[in-house]
Amino acid sequence: MSDALDAVRRFQEAFDAHDVDAVMAAMTEDCVFEDTAPPDGRRHVGQAAVRAAWEALFTGRPAFRAEETMACGEHVVVRWHYGFDGGHVRGVDLFRVRDGLVAEKLAYVKG
């Protein structure tokens, strides 16, 4: 298993548990998260901004489920399913890992 895949799996376990502290411990100090807010998503940069984005997201108790994970070097792609009352959406996260930590998580939704 690749180091990048290991790093993303640690991140995903913390994410699935809605454990903000563990998610942030799995990310670099200069981390980037791009969410799927319409129309083009919002960009959150650095530990404080990304932490705030996770805290807001986890308040709603999101029902994400990873469907497939692929790694190529420092990049990992996770295809996911997000269920909610009245439906669901699918999307992908493009991760970049640096020094065993998630440096970027760029989210895209099928719509």
Rank of each mutant, 00 (worst) to 15 (best):
H81A: 03
R43Q: 03
G91H: 06
A26K: 01
F84W: 10
F11C: 04
G91N: 05
R42A: 05
R42V: 02
G86C: 11
R42K: 09
F33A: 04
V102K: 07
C31F: 04
F11K: 02
M1C: 13
D19Y: 01
A17G: 05
G111N: 06
G73N: 13
D35Y: 02
E13R: 11
A49W: 00
L101A: 14
C31S: 10
L101C: 10
G86H: 07
A107E: 04
D16Q: 12
D21L: 03
G87S: 10
V76L: 12
T59C: 03
Y108I: 07
R43H: 10
G83Q: 10
A66E: 04
D40N: 13
A56S: 10
L5H: 14
T69F: 09
A4D: 11
M1G: 15
G91E: 06
R61D: 00
S2I: 08
F84R: 02
V78M: 13
V109Q: 05
E34N: 07
G87C: 13
G41F: 02
A56V: 05
V8D: 10
A4K: 11
V50E: 09
V45E: 15
G111L: 09
V76I: 15
E29T: 04
V78K: 01
A48V: 07
V97N: 04
A37D: 05
Q47C: 03
W54S: 00
A63R: 08
W54A: 00
H18S: 08
G86I: 05
V32N: 00
A4R: 12
R65K: 13
H88Y: 15
G83D: 12
E68Y: 07
A66V: 13
V89G: 00
A17C: 06
D16A: 06
C72L: 12
A71W: 05
H75V: 12
E68W: 03
T69E: 15
F33H: 08
A26G: 12
A4T: 15
V50C: 11
A14R: 08
R43I: 15
G91V: 02
M70K: 13
L57A: 05
F11W: 14
V50K: 00
L57H: 01
D19H: 08
L106M: 07
